[in-house]
Amino acid sequence: MNVAIVKYNAGNIYSVVNALKRLGVDSLLTDSPEELASADKVVFPGQGEASQAMSYLREHGLDQVICSLRQPVLGICIGMQLMCTHSEEGDTDCLGIFPAEVKRFQPRQHDEKVPHMGWNQIYMPANRCSEEPALMLPNGEFVYFVHSYYVPVCDFTSAICDYIQPFSAALHRDNFYATQFHPEKSGSVGERILRSFLDLPG
């Protein structure tokens, strides 16, 4: 299988390369529009700041490329946030794949720390009954989060996490999948989620 990882100015991209390697998949780290378009699967990972990441993607024409992809695409963490319409982080216009606004956590009390860092549980939204292929997101399992901004629960939410308030732990629309958590750092549960992405048809 030919898996491409979007190369841009975000941190921690190699952790995804390593995670895929542990699943027996050699991925290609690339910013070439042709290589991204021709891959069987594309991962859009990262850790970083929204406005700088979007400027880089625009300068390199990667914003158009990502939106035009037709194969399964997996956004991770800042990757997922950049796939939304707009982020409060740096007042940034993003890719608009998911019609959602990325907001900053507003703690209500002292022990609600920001960033939301560590292992937290994900749940299935009650009304989610899709016939479409989907990521295997195990109800009630713990996965690893590190983030200060969140996507509110919306029509495209495929898993919910509750921290300060319920928010989108995962999103899904057509061929675009995304997780706010880091499956590549989420132990065996994360490996199963990544495996389910690799197993998606198309």
Partner: peptide, 8 residues
Amino acid sequence: VAEQLNIP
């Protein structure tokens, strides 16, 4: 370690 480990 980074190659082998799946936790932070």
